[in-house]
Each structure stands twice: as structure tokens, then as C-alpha cells.
């Protein structure tokens, strides 16, 4: 039990990532409402983003901005004093990707609602006239 607690506490960020991922996946798989599926998708993407951000963190480090001017050139930056900026930069891009995905998903959801008058996946499938060519899994 002790060992398990230590596992969880020392690697809290990873456990949180996994927990959030599972929440997201659960919503995407089990929810029938399309918007809830989209929310699940966004939680999943956020979990990944947070994981990357937590990788870059360091104890006692500050934001990686070098002050120009006076004595900046005198003391060369020591990497341990700054958190790793690369994961943040990567995640800026990943957030852009996530937002675009969200945009496309919501646009599709709006169109589906206009076409069917409902956002419930089971209802939409039931409303479609069963056509012979759609047999099979």
C-alpha cells in the first residue's frame, strides 16, 4: 500500500493524464449524444496536452525568458534554471490542431442536427430509412 501511494504521488501527473484519458475515451465510446462525444474527444486531447506540459516542468525552475540588456550576456543561461520550453511550443501547435478538430466536429454536428433534427446517434440511425445496401457491420 505504501509503495502504491508513493507510485501515485511521485508520478501524479501521469496518473492524472491516464485518468483524464479514460474519462475522455469513456465519453467517446458510451455517450449517444454527439456533442458529448465531442466533449469526450476534447478531454482526451487535453489529457495529452497536459502530459506534454508536465514533462517540461522542473522543480525550482522559472519561465524560459532571457532578459536582454545589462548583464544578460555575462551569465550564460543554465538549463536547470528554466523549464523546458519545447513541450509548450509543441502543445501550442497541438492546441491549434485540437481547436481545428473541434471546429470540424462541431460543424459536422450542426449539419447532422439540421439534417435529422436530433443529436442522438441511435435516433439518427433509426431515422435513416433502412436501405438494403447498408447491410452488414
Amino acid at each position: 500500500m505504501e509503495a502504491l501511494w508513493e507510485q501515485i504521488l511521485t508520478k501524479a501527473n501521469y496518473w492524472m493524464t491516464i485518468a483524464l484519458m479514460m474519462v475522455g475515451l469513456y465519453a467517446m465510446i458510451t455517450k449517444r449524444n454527439l456533442v458529448k462525444k465531442i466533449i469526450g474527444m476534447n478531454i482526451l486531447q487535453t489529457a495529452v496536452i497536459l502530459m506534454f506540459i508536465s514533462i517540461g516542468a522542473k522543480r525550482g525552475a522559472t519561465i524560459p525568458i532571457l532578459k536582454h540588456g545589462d548583464a544578460a550576456a555575462a551569465h550564460a543561461p543554465r538549463a536547470v534554471d528554466y523549464i523546458n520550453p519545447l513541450p509548450h511550443v509543441l502543445m501550442l501547435t497541438a492546441i491549434v490542431v485540437a481547436v481545428s478538430t473541434l471546429g470540424v466536429a462541431l460543424a459536422l454536428a450542426v449539419k447532422i442536427y439540421q439534417q435529422n433534427g436530433t443529436l442522438d446517434e441511435a435516433d439518427i440511425l433509426a431515422r435513416q430509412v433502412p436501405r438494403s445496401h447498408e447491410g452488414g457491420p
Partner: peptide, 24 residues
């Protein structure tokens, strides 16, 4: 097509997120 595309998007995003975790 709309529902097909929506499902493609949801499942495709799971795939892409898994890949991103792998890279992480």
C-alpha cells in the same frame, strides 16, 4: 456521409492522440 464523417473524425482523433502520446 455526415454521420460517417463524424465517426471517422472521432475514431481518427483517438488514433492521432495515441500517436501523440507515443511521441510524448
Amino acid at each position: 456521409a455526415l454521420l460517417a464523417s463524424f465517426r471517422y473524425l472521432i475514431i481518427g482523433t483517438i488514433g492521432a492522440s495515441f500517436y501523440l502520446i507515443g511521441i510524448g
